[in-house]
Simulated scan of single mutants.
Amino acid sequence: MNPKVMIILGSASDLKIAQKSIDIFETLQIPYSLKVASAHRTHEKVKKLVVEATTNGIEVFMGIAGLAAHLPGSIAAYTHKPVIGVPVDVKLGGLDALFASSQMPFPAPVATVGIDRGDNGAILAGQIIGVNDPEVKKRVSKLRKSYQEKVKIDEEKLISQLDGKLLQKNFLDNYDEISEEKLNKEEPHTDKIFKESESVESEKNTPLVSVVPGSYSDIEEAKNVALTLDRLGISYDISVISPIRYPDKFNKYMENMKDVKLFIAVTGLSAHVTGSIVALSEKPVIGVPRSVEINGLDSLLSMVNMPPGVPVGTVGIENGRNAGVLAGEILGISDKNIEEKLKLMKYKTADI
């Protein structure tokens, strides 16, 4: 049984974070390998491991590192497979590792998850593998539902412990039974930036990727995503829709896009778009933060630091091209045409 995921630790001290990943992979029944290699102290080892692992069937790499955390980027330099970065809090609250992992140049994306979130990194890997493996997809879905159940159990436990005289403990106990008609009074509506890519021959065909800019100010960066997807021959839909301004319409749009392989959200400020997508879908979600205020740090941090169970693979601020490359890496696992175009893009661009 060959492993599908390779976990590489920058240091043995990162094992406590890797253990979170290991527990998830055991639950999802995904075979994995674990190595220790430093991007700075054992660079040749990293290179040989990644090149050989890519040749021998590894589908997803995970780099776990703290401090300067160049390990995930070094992995991305030697493979055209998806690379997930897990920043570790050693100094500066882990922000140094977070920036080093996410702020990668084109065309070497790292799908960065939250600081110390080895669990979310593994779930994202499961979602990526689940794009082509129905059994893994089912197990990811079951795991996601267990997180939902935990919230319900925690609520019941908390309320049972409270003894306020005015507390109405049974208020809205049957909220799950509210009809869809009451929730959705309007027809779904999105604003198309342009038609689906040329790869979609008819409206009946489902695009591979849904690109969701949160507002019109995000359009230019969304176009960078689209240009990269076009070069890779990946079909897509682009629609501007805000889950904050039009929540019901957003829910309808997500229902219409239920058969896409993955989502790419482009958004600034508090980046609710990515959080809303991942709340409504179990497909991989790629986030592109935008610089609207405070140099985009608000968007980056609110996008990447998701709670357990709902990962967003975040690329660098205003690096939509890397989001397109990452989508190609995910879809190229099972599509040789995309893989060949991706290899040309990654390796030829690197030679320039």
Score class of each variant (00 low, 15 high):
121 G>V: 03
145 K>T: 10
217 S>Q: 08
7 I>Q: 04
268 G>H: 03
352 I>A: 13
106 F>N: 08
86 V>K: 12
93 G>P: 06
185 K>V: 13
204 K>Q: 07
37 A>C: 06
303 M>T: 14
88 V>N: 15
40 H>G: 04
124 L>F: 07
72 P>V: 01
334 S>Q: 13
321 R>G: 12
280 L>R: 15
218 D>W: 07
254 M>W: 07
217 S>M: 05
338 I>M: 13
60 V>H: 08
311 P>A: 08
89 D>N: 15
98 L>I: 03
337 N>K: 15
345 M>P: 07
334 S>V: 02
207 P>H: 08
315 V>Q: 01
188 P>D: 04
187 E>L: 08
178 I>Y: 02
99 F>Q: 06
63 G>Y: 07
166 L>E: 13
192 K>G: 06
36 V>E: 00
231 R>L: 13
177 E>S: 12
125 A>L: 06
56 N>Q: 13
211 V>F: 05
98 L>P: 05
289 P>S: 10
119 D>K: 02
331 L>G: 09
247 P>R: 07
139 R>V: 05
162 L>K: 08
119 D>Y: 02
90 V>G: 04
68 A>I: 11
56 N>S: 12
287 G>E: 00
242 S>T: 10
166 L>Y: 14
351 D>K: 14
332 G>W: 08
132 N>T: 14
275 G>H: 13
29 Q>N: 15
246 Y>E: 09
110 V>F: 01
20 K>I: 01
153 I>S: 13
125 A>F: 04
236 Y>E: 04
233 G>L: 05
136 V>W: 09
21 S>L: 07
297 L>N: 03
65 A>L: 13
123 I>D: 00
62 M>T: 14
61 F>D: 07
5 V>F: 06
343 K>M: 09
169 K>C: 02
81 K>P: 04
